[in-house]
């Protein structure tokens, strides 16, 4: 087993609104290996953003543990706690909202450097800012240091927010939908730059997205974890997930997404769901929460027992799945629509 830099063990998280308790995450277990590309994929409300925040320590779990380099982050105190905070950074979806509009790029980047005493004085800060901008390909640096966020394009703003995340020399970066607000033509460039950071800075990147194709591109040599309604339903090597999805939800997702190729996309077989209604988190169905929509649903089993994420007995690939029929070693049998 490769070394896990982050490990989530039995993580639950719920929010309370008024009288109702919303279980946003339930029983999440997975590890992030050092320097791997891991993508968390899912639709809105699946809990992927909450998972990202929990990994960064921005949100405590309701129960369960998060290990950072083998240590429970809840037990960290003082200097160690600060080190964890610095080591795990998050990049948000909307760089416009997360950048202070009244600060120049230089001010924005120098502040954390000086506050955490990561550099020696103004001079040191200036050098480091230039280095960071160079890392995120905002060159020539002189063109950018004195700009305010509104003077930058969307892609450039996102690069600044990545540079800011890098100020504390993190070992893990959680990128939450970091390219979804950026134009198609420059999205890939941004992604490639982030992928290069791993090799240049030894940083592990957890990429959170709703776009499976983007996840495939980013984590081609890594892993994808698919989430549905607060649970991880499948996790495995990206190439296996794409070529041989195991969990019914992953299969349906892959079959539903249009492709940028007219012939392929029009001849694609779409698996019909039994229901198009997404259950509310406050009214989750019993058993497997996908069962009311699942075309392979087994009555009397899927609606009773909550499936556990595990390697199925008769697996052809080594993806872990949470699915009752697969858990029992049964073949999936498609229902007539």
């Amino acid at each position: 087993m490769p070394e896990s830099i982050i490990e989530l063990q039995g993580v639950y998280r719920s929010f309370k609104t008024g009288r109702t308790v919303v279980p946003v995450l339930q029983d999440i277990n997975f590890g992030v290996n050092k320097l791997e590309f891991l993508c968390l994929v899912g639709e809105s409300g699946c809990g992927k953003t909450t998972t990202g925040k929990i990994i960064c320590g921005l949100l405590p779990p309701s129960s369960g543990q998060i290990l950072f380099e083998g240590q429970d982050i809840a037990s960290l105190r003082g200097a160690e706690r600060r080190r964890h905070r610095r080591s795990v950074q998050i990049i948000h979806q909307d760089p416009y909202a997360s950048l202070n509009p009244t600060q120049t790029v230089k001010e924005m980047l120098s502040y954390p450097l000086l506050a955490h005493r990561l550099v020696n004085g103004r001079r040191g800060a200036e050098n480091r800012v230039n280095e960071l901008l160079d890392l995120v390909d905002l060159t020539p640096v002189e063109d950018f240091v004195d700009k305010y966020p509104h003077q930058l394009s969307g892609g450039q703003r996102q690069r600044v927010s990545i540079a800011r995340a890098l100020t504390t020399e993190p070992s893990v970066i959680v990128a939450d939908e970091s390219v979804s607000m950026v134009d198609v033509s420059i999205r890939i460039g941004l992604l490639q730059m982030m992928m290069d950071l791993r090799d240049r800075l030894d940083v592990t990147i957890v990429f959170i997205t709703h776009d499976l194709a983007l996840a495939k591109y980013f984590a081609w040599d890594g892993r994808i974890g698919v989430m549905y309604l607060g649970r991880l339903v499948e996790i495995g090597a990206t190439q296996q997930i794409i070529a041989a999805p195991q969990h019914p939800y992953t299969k349906v997702l892959l079959s539903a997404i249009p492709e940028p190729d007219p012939h392929k996309t029009r001849s694609k077989q779409h698996i019909q769901l039994r229901s198009e209604d997404i259950p509310r988190l406050t009214e989750l169905p019993p058993g497997c929460s996908f069962h009311p929509r699942c075309p392979w649903y087994v009555p009397g089993a899927c609606d009773v027992t909550v499936p556990q994420l595990a390697l199925p007995p008769q697996a052809v690939v080594d993806s872990e799945v949470a699915c009752i029929p697969l858990e029992r070693g049964d073949e999936l049998v498609l229902h007539d629509a």
Binding site: S153, G155, Q156, D183, V184, S185, I186, R187, I188, G189, L190, Q192, D211, L212, A213, L214, K216, Y217, W220, Q239, I242, A243, L254, I257, E259, P260, D261, K264
Partner: peptide, 24 residues
């Protein structure tokens, strides 16, 4: 052509993609 080569697919092979340099 640039747009087409910057869009990832779900095909079972690694995508070779490239951004269009610069911005609109």
């Amino acid at each position: 052509y640039g747009l087409l080569t910057s869009v990832p697919t779900l095909e079972h092979a690694q995508d070779v993609l490239q951004s269009i340099p610069g911005s609109p």
